[in-house]
Structures are given as C-alpha cells and as structure tokens.
C-alpha cells in the first residue's frame, strides 16, 4: 500500500493516548483521596465466614449480621476471613474489600445520614453465597 498518508492515524493514536493519560490521572487522584484513612477513624473488625458477617467494635461490642454505626463519624473496617475468600460490600456507600484468610484488609467510610443499607458478599464463597447478606444501620449521632 503506502500510497495514502499516515498522519490521520497518528493523530488518532495521539488522541487516544491523551484520553488514557487523562483517565489515569483522574483515577489516580480519586484513589489517592479515597485511600487516605482519617486519623480519628474508629476501627471495626469485620469477620467473614461461610455464610455470615460478624462485627467487633472498638469498645468490644460484638454484633452478628447487623452493624450499627453513627452518622458523622469515620469508621475503618479491618476485614478478615475464617475460611474462604469473601468480599465485604456496602453498595450504597461504595465500600468494597475482599476478606482473604490470613490477611487483614482495610477500607474506611464516613456515613453522613441516618438510614438502613444492605451489606452483601460479592466474592463467590460457596453454597449460600447468594444469601450472605447483612444490614448496616446508621444511627443519629449520639452527642
């Protein structure tokens, strides 16, 4: 071939590269903000096992299936698993992190309004994976 010019293709590739650089930069920036855990976040230990969630608050209170938190505070989840891989997910608050046995994975969030939200498992974990659900109850601030 070679009897046509190549510059439109170079321009096109340049535009794609520019777009991808932009996507990467935006994503990098948001990830940087989202990953920064506030220093005063309360720790909640989340334990995943086939096929339910249990939670342990900083003051030692334990809960199974339902998690109570207060609006206006930041919480840091330390997620562990007792058997197989799970994935801790509060879709309404865009919280997601795998529970991998032998590891402690962390993710944080700060609920802003009182309300009720679903907690679910997003990583395949066997027989009752579809029903490994819980509730997040965000309460009004106590003070």
């Amino acid at each position: 071939m070679g009897h046509h010019s190549n510059w439109p293709e170079w321009l096109y590739v340049g535009v794609i590269i520019a777009l991808m650089v932009w996507v990467g930069a935006e994503a990098w920036n948001v990830e940087r903000l989202v990953e920064h855990v506030p220093a005063d976040a309360e720790v909640i230990i989340v334990t995943a096992q086939q096929w339910f969630w249990s939670f342990e608050h900083e003051d030692g209170t334990k809960e199974i299936g339902t998690l109570h938190v207060e609006a206006g505070k930041a919480y840091k989840f330390e997620i562990i698993s007792k058997d197989v891989n799970h994935s801790f997910n509060i879709h309404d608050y865009v919280v997601l992190m795998d529970a991998v046995p032998g590891r402690v994975n962390t993710v944080w969030f700060a609920p802003d309004k009182a309300g009720e939200h679903d907690i679910q498992c997003r990583e395949y974990c066997g027989l009752l994976h579809y029903n490994m659900r819980g509730k997040l109850i965000v309460e009004e601030p106590s003070r």
Partner: peptide
Amino acid sequence: GVANAAMPLDFTTHDT
C-alpha cells in the same frame, strides 16, 4: 474496560 481499569471504580463494579 477503561472504566474497569480506573481503580476507584472497582469499588462500584468489581464482582458485580
């Protein structure tokens, strides 16, 4: 796929 690659969007889309 580009949206998947952007890391923060994984919180919304991963394993869904």
